[in-house]
Write a protein that binds this DNA or RNA. Structure first.
Lengths: 249, 249
DNA sequence: ATTCGTAAGTGGGACAGTACCCCTATTGTG
DNA sequence: CACAATAGGGGTACTGTCCCACTTACGAAT
């Protein structure tokens, strides 16, 4: 099974364990929101200290798993999300894992990548010992700045997964505040998908999904007020039976 | 970011690294095929040696990442797949990762789970130093035997992912030999989905997907011979615009 | 007070895709 | 010649997109 063949046979399992140097283990996060009419991702600046790889470069927030504090990978991801945004994310999903010899100069490493959707919390807080953080708009499948490690690849995978799931799920509700209008929700879909969406078809779809409830308030503005809605069960994701607009294109 | 707060500040990144004990890192595989009219998964028997957890229990095949031999996680998965089935899998996909304090008695561990689809290779080879292996039919979301570690959960996730993707992709072609008839392919869909599929609708769907080519041979039998087909591009997976049978049920 | 502009929200009809059912033809075996 | 399974065609019904038009509700301008 997992026995190194070039070495003499060892008699105890404990001794065999020692034959396998352990990879570095990290968790990274792709945290998305909709800000200023664009899909944006939260990036942090790598520390500028001796021995740190990619000093000063932008990267996805994340870091080493702390086997003392983190009971499991998701708890680790939630901890880091909280540290970065002070937001208890309504939506957190594992994207996958990337591991290999070359991706970190400090050695063979494996990272577990999660992606989170949150409502725009405003400018990221740059506390005293908090590293510099900033929202970057998504352009294509990534951002315009260079990213540390293989984070360009991780981010691209996250963007692709997000876009593809938005085609057939209700995910974008978690990019908005708890309460929103149908038009705002439609804009969120359009921003993620990067194309316009038919109003009638969109509203039919949402109605058929039956995952929103009216809240007894209105969004007032210059024109006719809009009904406010929110998801019935926070965290719930509805799968539609068809992809979004098969007729287009 | 990932700095333990209870300890004195260290001056070098290398020293900080040492503060993070590394989790055990493994790769596990859910290898599926269609055998004897059922969806089946390959299991191996855990070694019966001192110090080994869950001795003699059935488990998903897998083992420690070998950072000397495996350039990355997928290579590690392919190596283990090859060792177990001597099959170069046409389809291998990462399912996700599970990590936590409790899942392995040897300590905090993280496993990277892949699932593979292969054509029925017959009985698994029980070589000299190869552990006992066997195909088990899937019942519900798992198998009837108890599994080691948290493998029941991993397998359930794999089965759910497989079933759900079969609703809108061409995946089952990789559960069959390279060449097959449309009826055999339909049976494969039905076996995975666990429900009958309309013949006309099925054939329309396959034709619309346009991923099969005729091979100039026929499957002869007791009746009218059937046209043999195979996928045009090995490894390709087609996504249909709708889930399989929204009208039913 | 009336009019105007704008965005919200509703509704109908054409159209495409396809699930579903039924029927027929084909082509081997016994 | 009957049988069995493959292959394929036709027709209906239903779903959901897409397009267009219309009404509603508010603030602002006149």
């Amino acid at each position: 099974m997992a026995k190194p063949k070039s070495k003499p046979k060892l008699s105890t399992a404990a001794a065999r364990l020692a034959d396998f140097p352990r990879p570095l283990t990290t968790v990274d996060l792709a945290i998305f929101t909709v800000r200023e009419g664009a899909l944006q991702v939260l990036l942090v600046k790598r520390p500028d200290e001796p021995g740190e790889p990619h000093p000063g470069a932008w990267a996805l927030p994340g870091g080493f798993v702390d086997i003392g504090r983190d009971r499991d990978l998701e708890a680790c991801a939630r901890r880091k999300l909280k540290e970065k945004t002070s937001v208890a994310s309504p939506y957190l999903e594992q994207l996958g894992s990337w591991g290999g010899k070359e991706r970190d100069p400090r050695g063979w490493s494996a990272t577990h990548v999660y992606f989170a959707l949150i409502a725009d919390p405003g400018e990221p807080l740059a506390g005293a010992n908090a590293p510099a953080a900033a929202w970057y708009p998504i352009a294509g499948e990534g951002v315009k700045v260079k990213l540390a490690f293989d984070h360009r690849e991780l981010l691209a995978a996250a963007v692709i997964r997000l876009r593809s799931k938005v085609e057939y799920t209700s995910l974008p509700v978690y990019l908005l505040p708890r309460e929103f209008t149908l038009t705002e929700l439609q804009r969120a879909f359009e921003i993620v998908l990067g194309r316009p969406v038919e109003k009638s078809a969109f509203r039919d779809r949402i109605k058929a999904g039956d995952f929103l409830e009216e809240v007894p308030r209105l969004r007032t503005g210059q024109q006719r007020p809009a009904q406010l809605y929110r998801v019935k069960k926070l965290g719930e994701v509805v799968f539609f039976p068809r992809t979004f607009s098969p007729r287009k294109e």
